[in-house]
Each structure stands twice: as C-alpha cells, then as structure tokens.
Amino acid sequence: MAKTDECKGCQRDAWLSDEEIELIYKNAIESMDTELADDEVYKARLDKCFECNALLYGATCVHCGCIVQVKARVLNASCPYPFQPKW
C-alpha cells in the first residue's frame, strides 16, 4: 500500500520477511568497508544467535537492534550479550 503524505513509516512490522532480510544484508554489507567472516565462522555465530533468548522477531538482537545475519558476517563484530558474549 502506498504511504500517505509525510508518513513516518511507523506502521510496519518488526518481523521481517526473508526478502527484507536479504535486502538489508545486501545493502549493509555493500555500505561497510570491513572484513567479512568466512562461512564457517558465520554459521557458527548464527547458530548461537538462533538459540539465544535475546533474539526477537526472528532476526533481531534485542541488545543491539541488529539483524543477526548482518552482524554475524562482520569479522570484527562481537556478540553484545551483557557480560557473557555468545561469540
């Protein structure tokens, strides 16, 4: 549905579709000048994220607001879980 005049875009869902996650991932990685984790590290990190109680709405970390598929791909990123990073 088309947005109305000066809509702030608030009435949208925090649950993201696979297509939205893919687009966010693509745009984020393209905009970052950073080294990426290889697939093995990436998968290990994501496994931790998906079993974590801080994961909200399927893909969002409650402690940083990040889409975990993006955060886990950044090599020098670290898990923001308070005092007990999972990776």
């Binding site: 993201l16 984020a28 905009s31 607001g65 990040c66 889409i67």
Partner: peptide, 15 residues
C-alpha cells in the same frame, strides 16, 4: 534529526 536507520539494524527500531 531523522535519518535512514543504521545499515544492518531493524528498520522499525529507528536506530
């Protein structure tokens, strides 16, 4: 100020 959200963050969180 109101910008696009930080890349890689949930767009509904306005971070």
């Amino acid at each position: 100020t109101w910008y696009d959200v930080e890349p890689g963050t949930n767009p509904r969180f306005l971070y």
